[in-house]
Amino acid sequence: MTIDILDLDPQKTVVVATGNAHKVVEIEAILSEVLPGVRFVALGELGDFPEPVEDGDTFTANALIKARAALEQTGLSAIADDSGLVVDALDGAPGIYSARYAGNHGNDEANNNKLLSELTFVDEDKRTAHFHSSVVFVKKDGTVLVGEGNCPGKIGYAPKGKNGFGYDPLFLPEALQGMTMAQLTPEQKNSISHRFYALKDLASQL
């Protein structure tokens, strides 16, 4: 069911540029501590808006593109994030192309297979990587705040675990050694995730 923008208090509403309800819950859980009384609403709940072209060359640039588009489309303060996997042995790839590393956007299996192929001859101690997240908050007056966070770890040799998505089955976080992101509970993952740290960084600026 679509929410009518006119029913929302523009001073007490922040639109989250996503269709992912879980992401809204995660953002609200952290930012509500510093923005009491503010309602966080997914952009998809307000209507069917065209997706902006994410042609930035950094995570922050792409998050800013999404947040500014949501502000223009709704007239409400907006938050957007952009995140991905950065592998040291691959000079930072897949980076901003994480979701479409193998060519088709969102094909997790193909992306993981390509990553494993690229790292075939890379020794274990050189398989270091981190997930990065940039969260951008654009206020109604145009003010921009940026929170950034990383989750360091390594890339495994084969996918393990059924939870999560993307590269989670291959990523072994430093904070919980011996398990991939896809083997963690949602609570465990959220407590160490790159988005968690980025949101904490953003919250400290609010």
Score class of each variant (00 low, 15 high):
1 M>N: 09
1 M>E: 10
2 T>A: 14
2 T>W: 02
3 I>H: 11
6 L>G: 07
6 L>D: 15
8 L>K: 07
8 L>H: 04
10 P>V: 06
12 K>A: 14
12 K>H: 13
12 K>M: 12
12 K>T: 08
12 K>V: 01
14 V>E: 08
14 V>A: 12
15 V>D: 12
17 A>P: 08
18 T>W: 14
19 G>Y: 12
19 G>C: 15
20 N>F: 15
25 V>H: 08
26 E>Q: 15
26 E>V: 11
31 L>G: 13
34 V>M: 09
36 P>G: 02
36 P>Q: 01
37 G>F: 03
38 V>Q: 01
39 R>A: 12
39 R>K: 13
44 G>H: 15
44 G>M: 14
45 E>K: 12
48 D>W: 06
48 D>G: 09
48 D>Q: 14
48 D>E: 15
49 F>W: 07
49 F>C: 08
51 E>C: 02
52 P>V: 02
53 V>D: 00
54 E>N: 01
55 D>Q: 03
56 G>M: 00
58 T>E: 06
61 A>G: 13
61 A>N: 05
65 I>T: 09
67 A>F: 06
70 A>V: 02
70 A>W: 04
71 L>E: 12
72 E>I: 05
75 G>D: 11
75 G>N: 09
77 S>R: 04
78 A>L: 04
80 A>H: 11
81 D>N: 10
81 D>Q: 06
89 A>T: 12
91 D>E: 14
93 A>C: 07
94 P>Y: 00
95 G>P: 03
95 G>D: 00
96 I>V: 15
96 I>S: 07
97 Y>C: 01
100 R>A: 06
102 A>Y: 08
102 A>R: 07
105 H>W: 10
106 G>I: 04
109 E>D: 15
115 L>I: 12
115 L>W: 07
121 F>N: 15
122 V>Q: 07
124 E>I: 05
127 R>A: 07
127 R>F: 06
127 R>H: 03
128 T>E: 07
130 H>D: 11
131 F>Q: 02
131 F>M: 09
133 S>K: 10
135 V>E: 07
136 V>K: 14
145 L>R: 11
148 E>R: 09
150 N>P: 00
151 C>S: 13
152 P>D: 13
152 P>W: 10
153 G>Q: 01
153 G>K: 02
156 G>K: 10
156 G>L: 13
162 K>G: 10
165 F>M: 07
169 P>L: 03
169 P>C: 04
172 L>P: 01
175 A>K: 11
176 L>C: 00
178 G>Y: 10
178 G>W: 11
180 T>P: 01
181 M>H: 03
181 M>L: 14
182 A>I: 01
186 P>K: 03
192 I>C: 04
193 S>D: 05
194 H>K: 15
197 Y>I: 03
197 Y>G: 04
198 A>N: 10
204 S>M: 03
204 S>Q: 08
206 L>H: 05
